[in-house]
Amino acid sequence: MTPLLVTRGLSRHFGGLRAVDGVDFSLMPGEIRAVIGPNGAGKTTFVSLVCGRYEPSAGTIVFDGEDITRMPAHLRVRRGIAYTFQITSVFANLPVYDNVALPVQRTLTDGRSRGAVRHGVMEALERVGLASRAGVPAGSLAYGHQRLLEVAMGLALKPRLLILDEPTQGLSDGEIDNFIGLVRDIARDATVLLIEHNMPVVMELAQRITVLNAGRILAEGTPAEIRANTAVQEAYLGTTQEAGA
């Protein structure tokens, strides 16, 4: 099987800072992959390079056999790469319905049909459990619901690769449980790349884990392998366990 996403020597420098430094990464179709690492390890910069928000300083990105290194972000989205923002950035002044209608109308072959748009919107909202809130302004939703709306917008793009940037940040335990179920559900027809700080969520969801540190890949493997990796423990897990204790 050929990988869905491959990066070779991917780098991004901000002035003297090497935020991402020569990352070789590959992702199989259907996988749920978690990217973890301490703050400032370059996780968000890395996925921003993949989805085209930043231009790389060096290296290549290949998506589904096609070199997308220099492709504008909106065309990558059309190829099937969806990105949900770390800082919730729903359209706060627009109704929940319109927030989801925007991605829906773009993926439909007949986006002019109001019925088709409505159907697509309600389907996405039902999947995240926000169907009853379609009419309210997105900014008036509770924080956890705004995160779910963000995911619904990603889902509505019918992505082949869904990038979730710290999706559980600020969610309650009950919301996190629902969220885990939702991601499993999504993974049945999309590949998921997850940046996450919450280790129980990572251990429960991810089939493989990539650990970034100082812009480089420190380790990669199954949750069990990563747990057993001493380098990772020193660089990262140790601090979380202390924080969690």
Partner: peptide, 25 residues
């Protein structure tokens, strides 16, 4: 009231987010 109109309002509200929904802003 068209698709295009909805995209324009989205650009006004948050251009970066609109771009990341696949629109050529």
């Amino acid at each position: 009231r068209s698709r295009h109109g909805r995209v324009l309002v989205a650009i006004r509200e948050n251009e970066e987010r609109t771009r990341m929904l696949g629109y050529d802003t």
